[in-house]
């Protein structure tokens, strides 16, 4: 697995390099370090969500409610800030992560205990979460002047040349790389998605593993929710509308198998960066945003084809036939 993943990620890295090279031909300033930092910072929310989504997809599920979770949690922390502007930011962060995790657990419980297909569960909760925002606010916005300065300052504060938003994304990449490769839980995500039957026989509770995947995805969405509304200094019903599909796209481009069992944090990171670069570069080099969609779409299909090729091993096919013969 390591080798295939490594080569897959290397391929994506080369593709990103080529992309940057092409862009720099038309607009050399794009690859200046300060601009690249901007691009990374701008892509950070996508990176955070893609990591959570990657884990969910790894367990043969999908979380379509991430963007709605982000919007709802963002609204909840904005309203808390409105009601109690003096509340320390650490509390706000804890509430964002905790509330997001709760929403994720709700998805997870439905998938685990009621065995409802994840796509149906999260399609439903996606709508419910947005609906709750409307109920909370009557459709009104929480605007910049209603948020406390401390609330808005967090994502922009620059530490060692990078904004906090970027640092959080980097921390998440490191944390979840460790979780996925060095903990029993991480191993369970791969096992549950790679072969649920075999995982069951090995004593892994597949449903509970999926529950934890949704919880992580929810917690990351909640955290991103706070970062998002404070960065843009506005919270409303349609924040990050449709963003869940970009998140899934980042995972697929990053080599996460939609059938489960295959994927990595570095893959999700690179997939998100690929989309982030396209989104930032195309306006700069004067290409219509419609091309952006076409390029992202093309990248998804190429990624899926490449992954399908990589998963083809001739040995397996012979074996299957021999087994049928007996």
């Amino acid at each position: 697995m390591k080798r295939i993943l490594a080569s897959r990620e290397l391929l994506l890295l080369v593709a990103i390099g080529l992309l940057l090279g092409l862009i720099s031909l038309r607009f050399p300033a794009f690859i200046a370090p300060s601009k690249l930092v901007d691009v990374f910072n701008d892509t950070s929310p996508l990176i955070l969500l893609a990591i959570g989504q990657m884990i969910v997809i790894l367990t043969k599920c999908i979380d379509l409610s991430v963007a709605a979770n982000l919007a709802l949690t963002g609204m909840v922390v904005s309203l808390i800030n409105l009601a109690a502007p003096g509340l320390p930011i650490t509390v706000i962060l804890a509430v964002a992560i905790g509330f997001g995790a709760l929403l994720g657990m709700f998805n997870g419980i439905l998938v685990w205990k009621l065995a409802i297909p994840p796509i149906v569960v999260t399609l439903g909760t996606m709508t419910i979460f947005r609906g709750v925002i409307f109920l909370l606010t009557d459709g009104k916005w929480v605007n910049s002047h209603e948020m406390s300065d401390a609330f808005k300052a967090v994502p922009r504060t620059v530490i060692a040349g990078l904004p906090v938003l970027s640092w959080i994304a980097i921390a998440a990449v490191i944390l979840f790389t460790v979780v996925m490769t060095r903990t029993s839980l991480g191993r369970a995500f791969y096992a549950a998605g790679g072969n649920p039957h075999a995982a069951t026989y090995a004593g892994i509770n597949v449903g509970r593993t999926q529950f934890w995947a949704f919880t992580i995805s929810g917690a990351l969405a909640g955290l991103t929710g706070y970062l998002w509304v404070s960065r843009f200094a506005v919270a409303y019903v349609d924040v990050a509308g449709g963003f869940e599909l970009t998140v899934v796209a980042a995972c697929v481009i990053g080599g996460v198998s939609i059938m489960g069992g295959i994927g990595s944090v570095p893959g999700a990171l690179l997939g998100a960066l690929f989309l982030g670069i396209i989104a930032n570069a195309l306006p700069v080099v004067n290409i219509s945003p419609f091309w952006q969609m076409a390029i992202s779409g093309g990248a998804i299909i190429i990624a899926v084809v490449l992954n399908a090729q990589a998963n083809r091993t001739p040995g397996r096919i012979i074996l299957k036939r021999a087994e049928h013969a007996t």
């Binding site: 191993r187 096992a191 790679g194 075999a198 090995a202």
Partner: peptide
């Protein structure tokens, strides 16, 4: 179906 997890390396299968 029930035995090994093809996408995982040998050692991860054995220790599961």
């Amino acid at each position: 179906r029930q035995g090994a997890i093809g996408a995982l390396p040998i050692f991860q299968n054995v220790t599961l």
